[in-house]
Lab assay of single mutants.
Amino acid sequence: MEVRTIKVFTTVDNINLHTQVVDMSMTYGQQFGPTYLDGADVTKIKPHNSHEGKTFYVLPNDDTLRVEAFEYYHTTDPSFLGRYMSALNHTKKWKYPQVNGLTSIKWADNNCYLATALLTLQQIELKFNPPALQDAYYRARAGEAANFCALILAYCNKTVGELGDVRETMSYLFQHANLDSCKRVLNVVCKTCGQQQTTLKGVEAVMYMGTLSYEQFKKGVQIPCTCGKQATKYLVQQESPFVMMSAPPAQYELKHGTFTCASEYTGNYQCGHYKHITSKETLYCIDGALLTKSSEYKGPITDVFYKENSYTTTIK
């Protein structure tokens, strides 16, 4: 009895394709271990004539594949690729409408935090270190965002349907971005203890939790000093293409032309909904596939993004 075979390709990165001759009487799992086709788990399936010449994702289970996976995804987590594939199996079914010149995501599976993050990423200057993220990001900007969303979920250790947080998501993504040249110098002034300067680099240099107003941050924000008295913390120097200011959701007025974009969060910790506000020729609110415009805006804002380049204080 002759062994019926077909020729397929296996890959971990969709760049390096490895030619395989597979036995049609055995499952993919018996031949390769966990195997995925377009995100779908085909591990328990036997090869079919229609699979001839198709590319299958496999887990990096030998040295060659491990090197290829690390170079593309910059992670050695053995569960990463499987999590990416199972997320992709959902995100490829989502709709990605162009809204006001940006790629958004039609609401499904509690994905409003991903839509808000995706919209924000198209408006701030950011370059990702893992080629996987950078490639998928370019495709997302062009309207094909399924891979990018699935990668975000995998890097953030999230599953489809789980509630997510924009600030946490951005923080994970910033860790995989090139923020080497970003720098922030802060000064804390206390009447009792004097003053202390701190220099922050990388992710810490672009994120701040405690106030939404970048102007206020430049002037000074009140913080408790270690001595128990009130101290003032203010920005001395900022070198970065953008800054992200966050605070627990509270009524906040966004003035046209003073910011790049913002995240609105309605609801409580267990259950809520994100919308995205962007400042173009007027203010726009993007909620999944829905767009509304207004000249002014007041609502429960939790993150505001500002364009920056270089700032030095005039406070002496």
Rank of each mutant, 00 (worst) to 15 (best):
C190T: 02
A177L: 03
G161K: 05
G33V: 05
Q222A: 12
D41W: 06
E2W: 08
T302D: 00
G29V: 06
T198R: 10
E71M: 09
L81E: 06
G101S: 07
V236G: 04
N89K: 14
R141W: 07
Q222I: 10
V160S: 04
S213N: 13
N129L: 08
C156G: 06
V22M: 10
F242Q: 01
C156Y: 04
P300N: 13
D303C: 05
F217L: 12
P78T: 11
H276L: 05
K106M: 07
A140V: 13
L121N: 03
T266L: 07
I152P: 00
I315V: 07
F174D: 02
M245E: 00
A145L: 03
E2D: 15
A250P: 00
T211K: 01
G220N: 01
V166T: 06
T76K: 14
K201M: 14
M245Q: 00
E253H: 10
S79Q: 14
L133I: 06
G29L: 08
F305P: 00
S310R: 13
K316G: 09
A231S: 07
G288F: 00
L235R: 00
V160C: 12
Q175S: 10
L235I: 09
R83Q: 08
S246A: 00
L88V: 06
E2N: 15
N147V: 12
P47N: 05
K158V: 02
Q230E: 12
S171V: 10
K280I: 08
C285T: 09
V221L: 12
H18E: 13
A140T: 09
Q216G: 10
N16W: 07
D38F: 13
A247S: 09
G164W: 03
I6Y: 09
T260V: 11
F9Q: 12
N16P: 05
M24A: 15
Y113W: 08
M245W: 00
R139P: 05
P249A: 01
L254V: 00
K46S: 14
Q196M: 13
C156F: 03
V8T: 08
F9S: 11
E168C: 07
P34D: 09
T75G: 04
V58M: 09
S310A: 10
R167H: 05
A205M: 00
H74P: 02
H51W: 06
Y274A: 01
L212A: 04
T91D: 03
G33T: 05
N61V: 14
L290F: 11
K95L: 15
L114S: 04
K233S: 10
V221N: 03
R139C: 11
T64L: 13
G272W: 00
T159Y: 14
N49A: 11
G161V: 01
G164S: 05
G82F: 09
N147Y: 10
E2V: 11
K127G: 08
K93H: 12
M170W: 02
G288V: 02
V99R: 07
A231G: 06
T266S: 11
Y172D: 09
S310F: 15
V99S: 06
I45D: 12
K233G: 15
V188T: 12
C193M: 02
K219Y: 07
T5V: 12
F128S: 03
N129W: 06
H276S: 04
S86V: 12
V58N: 08
Y306K: 01
Y84V: 05
M245I: 02
S25I: 07
V160R: 02
M170V: 07
V8L: 10
L163Y: 12
V166H: 06
G39S: 14
M170T: 02
A205Y: 01
G267S: 07
K275F: 00
A205D: 03
M26Q: 06
G288E: 02
K316H: 15
Y274H: 00
T226I: 15
P300Y: 14
N157G: 09
M207K: 06
F32Y: 08
Y96M: 03
V166A: 11
T278F: 10
Q175I: 06
T43F: 11
A154F: 02
D23S: 11
V189P: 02
Y172G: 10
L173K: 03
C193K: 04
H273P: 01
L102K: 04
I301V: 08
K93A: 09
T76I: 11
G82D: 11
N100A: 11
V166I: 05
L37H: 13
N111D: 02
A142M: 15
Y73N: 02
I301Y: 01
